[in-house]
Design a protein around this nucleic acid. Structure first.
Length: 596
RNA sequence: GGUCCCGUAGCUCAGCUGGAUAGAGCAACAGCCUUCUAAGCUGUGGGCCAUUGGUUCGAAUCCAAUCGGGGUCACCA
């Protein structure tokens, strides 16, 4: 049983008998004692002073004395103002530590043990341009949440819905056709997604020029935008695509493949993967029948101009069109179809998570509401993992205006910085080249991933490309360094670690006790992180743990400790610390090196 | 304008299911490597937690209003 429940039980029994109350254990408010005070757990006595008819201090004293008698795990208490601080006996923490130490997967539930299957969609790129910093946040977040959910024993299916068709894709295609001169990734040496992205920008440039030209000849801006030849050609290409025109399809396939080859490299560098990839070219027609079905059930209605809509004003939302007057789909049509299709394909999934930026908050509210109205009882288990924009000092990133931070450049830059810093330290001179390269990658990507994951997904975050991501302080490399330090000590310990049995009679150093207490929290942290879909909870916890280890490291020597029992305990203590750091970082998708 | 999110140290962020003197990191300054990796540790300075009012024994945290920033309100995706 969890110690906090155990304490709550004794406390409720104590206050109930002392003040004839009927407080339930779950209503006892217990918190960890602040560092400045003596004790492990603290009870706020204010809620009981009325019933006790005593001062907060006296009330605390009374409760303290009572539970000291009834609960042998508590060895002492003190009262400061209205706060009753309880100290648990060292033996309790030691025995808890033994459990942590025994369990290689402490805090992590066995794979698929919860019986809950979750589908998590993330990444979902467009195939007309390379990935940028916004995608990086999406990918890292999606991957981390999936990994964190797995620690809770859930079976997570990671899926990617690739937006591979539509007018924006045709823009790159048209531009390439006109200006490309047959350029290919092979010929140009450009990564495929970058090459296609180049023509997306090219389209915009040509389009703007044509619009301006038309306006100079007297067109209104609106007309010019509609009549620019390149735009007309793009729309024509979309029609051809939808008609299955061979030449268009061949061009589309070829250019998309360039992009996929490029994405493959970026995904690999990011360390993310998928169990299934959906393509919008296969799903964009889904949902139409569902709309027709909903129409007969009067969930939807036909408007005067033949478009089909749903009225959500009673749910605090607006009217929403679900099918155009010409019978074609809108964005939400296929989202409805895709969701329903997925639940048919995977009947066991209990939950669907969509990792999509917060500019689509309203869209998902509408989507889930419509699913609910359509009678999908799983609609309430759908969750929009909404995250804030990554902003630059100048403001929002805009693909077409070139104010984006390219994902590949960013990653390469981080790895390069890691290489420079690491080589300058002179610590890796004798490492084999292969290990060096892997290490620079681990550190560079660790810095980037941690930088992004340590902030609450819901909040927008600021990234200044001019200030490169730090490698000191509250950073990924700081944590990796703590891990490498521990591993170094463990390598130098020339005795068998497995045969150590921790003594029951140890006097704990302050930092040792703090380490045990913090390690004890790990399972709760993972749970909270999973329940709130927030990797930052784990990230900040692991940082605390690494920092605490560094403090311990500075105050207590492990290998030079002369008392054998203490030395062995410390070996075990740092071993579990390293394990938790590693497992915690794994759940964020961040690697930790054995040495650095 | 309706609606949603946000406003904490010079900067980037924690803390927000109400509790003790609001925490980290960066940046600045001062110390610590003949002692297990100094990507580290210790210390100093830095805050009317946007403002005002309310609820409460107690508010950065809950509620309301105001001010500032952003998103969204398509037969776009």
């Amino acid at each position: 049983m969890n110690i906090e429940h155990f304490l709550s039980d004794t406390i409720s029994t104590a206050v109930n008998s002392l003040f004839s109350l009927t407080t339930k254990p779950e209503n006892i408010i217990l918190q960890k004692t602040k560092k400045e005070f003596e004790g492990d757990y603290t009870l706020v006595t204010f809620p009981y002073i009325k019933a006790a008819k005593l001062t907060p201090e006296k009330t605390g004293e009374l409760i303290g004395e009572e539970i000291l008698k009834t609960n042998p795990t508590i060895t002492e208490f003190n009262v400061v103002k209205g706060f009753l601080n309880l100290t648990l006996k060292t033996g309790f923490w030691l025995s808890e530590f033994k459990n942590i130490s025994k369990d290689v997967n402490y805090g992590i539930k066995p794979a698929n043990s919860s019986g809950k299957q979750v589908m998590l969609e993330y990444s979902s790129p467009n195939t007309n341009k390379p990935l940028h910093l916004g995608h990086v946040r999406n990918n890292l977040l999606g991957y981390a949440v999936a990994a964190i959910l797995k620690t809770q024993g859930h079976d997570v299916i990671k899926v990617n819905l690739v937006n591979d068709r539509g007018i924006h894709i045709c823009k790159s295609m048209v531009a390439w056709k006109f200006f490309g001169n047959g350029e290919t990734p092979m010929l140009s040496g450009l990564k495929g997604d970058h090459l296609v992205g180049k023509y997306y920008v090219e389209f915009d440039r040509a389009y703007k020029k044509q619009v301006q030209h038309l306006m100079e000849k007297g067109s209104t801006k609106e007309d010019a935008e509609k009549q620019a030849p390149i735009m007309l050609q793009t729309q024509e290409m979309l029609l051809k695509w939808e008609a299955g025109d061979k030449e268009t399809m061949d061009l589309w396939k070829m250019m998309n493949h360039w992009v996929y080859d490029g994405f493959k490299i970026s995904y690999k560098k990011l360390g993310v993967d998928f169990d299934k990839i959906y393509y919008e070219s296969n799903t964009y027609l889904l949902g139409k029948e569902i709309v027709q079905e909903g129409l007969t059930k009067n969930i939807f209605y036909k408007k005067e101009n033949n478009s089909i809509a749903i009225d959500l004003t009673n749910d605090g939302l607006d009217e929403k069109i679900v099918l155009r007057s010409d019978g074609t789909s809108v964005y939400i049509t296929q989202d409805l179809g895709t969701a329903i299709e997925r639940f048919k394909e995977f009947p066991k999934i209990a939950q669907m998570i969509y990792t999509v930026g917060n500019e689509q908050d309203y869209h998902f509210k509408v989507l889930f509401k419509i699913l609910e109205k359509l009678g999908c009882e799983w609609a309430k288990e759908c969750y929009h993992l909404s995250y804030g924009m990554v902003e630059l000092p100048e403001g929002k990133m805009k693909s077409r205006e070139g104010t984006v931070v390219d994902a590949d450049d960013l990653m390469d830059g981080m790895v390069e910085t890691a290489r420079e810093v690491t080589e300058a330290s002179g610590k890796v001179a004798e490492f084999p080249q292969e290990e060096k390269d892997e290490l620079f990658n681990t550190i560079g990507m660790g810095a980037l991933k941690y930088f992004i994951l340590k902030v609450d997904p819901k909040k927008k975050m600021l990234f200044d490309p001019k200030e490169s991501i730090d490698l000191h302080g509250n950073t990924g490399p700081f944590i990796q360094y703590a891990h490498a330090r521990i591993k170094s000590i463990l390598r130098d310990y020339n005795a068998d670690i497995h045969s150590i049995s921790v003594s029951d009679n140890l006097k704990l150093h302050e930092k040792e006790k703090e380490l045990i207490k913090l390690q004890y929290d790990f399972p709760k942290i993972l749970e909270e992180s999973a329940n709130t879909y927030n990797p930052a909870v784990v990230a900040n916890y692991i940082y605390e743990l690494a920092k605490l280890f560094n403090q311990f490291y500075n105050e207590c020597s492990v290998l030079k400790e002369e008392n054998k029992a203490v030395k062995e305990f410390r070996i075990k203590l740092i071993e579990t610390t390293a394990r938790i750091i590693k497992n915690g970082m794994m759940s964020l998708g961040i690697e930790v090196p054995e040495r650095m």
